[in-house]
């Protein structure tokens, strides 16, 4: 092979390396587009049909602020060695508003006890408008000897609640689940 051909090969090889580097960089560029787009969209408030100014304060549009309901909370334990009380006795809510309240229960005896809470509503009619998303009354509760537990109720009042109802009393009564003696299940 003559000198010219060797020089030619060397030159070709150099161009090959350069072009391969471009190809590799462009592969990286594809990945670089991911953060670049994230930044651009964030900076310009793009990538969302909701304008950035209003996006932070997305509100529940289903709340009826024109009405305020008084919810009275009550707790009883029926022949059960438990101390059971709501953390607040009274709360004001708007229909449609998602509310979380808490109850506290303490087993004062030195053995485990299983109980089941049963709700009741006053007026009774309000029960069907009282939508609970989460409640300790959904399951049996087993408390070890001397255990104290805080338990939530998450609920909202259906805005369709008849307009003559202004106060709802929510009352829970714990009954012992006989025969379980603190045994779960």
């Amino acid at each position: 092979m003559n000198v010219l051909a060797v020089a030619q090969r060397e030159e070709n090889r150099r161009l090959l390396v350069k072009l391969s580097v471009i190809a590799a960089l462009m592969f990286g560029f594809g990945y670089a587009l991911v953060p670049v787009y994230a930044k651009i969209c964030e900076a310009m408030g793009l990538d969302s049909l909701v304008p950035a100014t209003t996006r932070q304060s997305v509100e529940n549009t289903q709340i009826d602020f024109s009405r305020t309901l008084s919810i009275e909370l009550d707790a009883n334990a029926h022949h059960l060695p438990w101390r059971f009380r709501p953390l607040v006795r009274h709360i004001d809510v708007h229909p449609g508003e998602l509310v979380t309240i808490e109850y506290e229960v303490t087993n004062v005896r030195d053995y485990a006890v299983t109980g089941q809470a049963v709700p009741s509503y006053g007026p009774q009619l309000a029960g069907q408008y009282f939508n609970k998303l989460d409640c300790f009354c959904f399951t049996k509760q087993t408390l070890a000897a001397g255990e104290t537990r805080r338990m939530p109720v998450v609920f909202l009042i259906d805005p369709k609640l008849p307009s003559d109802v202004n106060t709802i009393t929510l009352s829970y009564t714990f009954f012992e689940v006989a025969g379980l003696k603190g045994d779960k299940s």
Binding site: L19, I22, A23, A24, L25, M26, F27, G28, F29, G30, Y31, L33, V34
Partner: peptide
């Protein structure tokens, strides 16, 4: 050379 690697990146993702 400039665009094919970007497609390779997209399908790799």
């Amino acid at each position: 050379i400039a665009s094919m690697p970007v497609l390779a990146g997209a399908v790799t993702m």
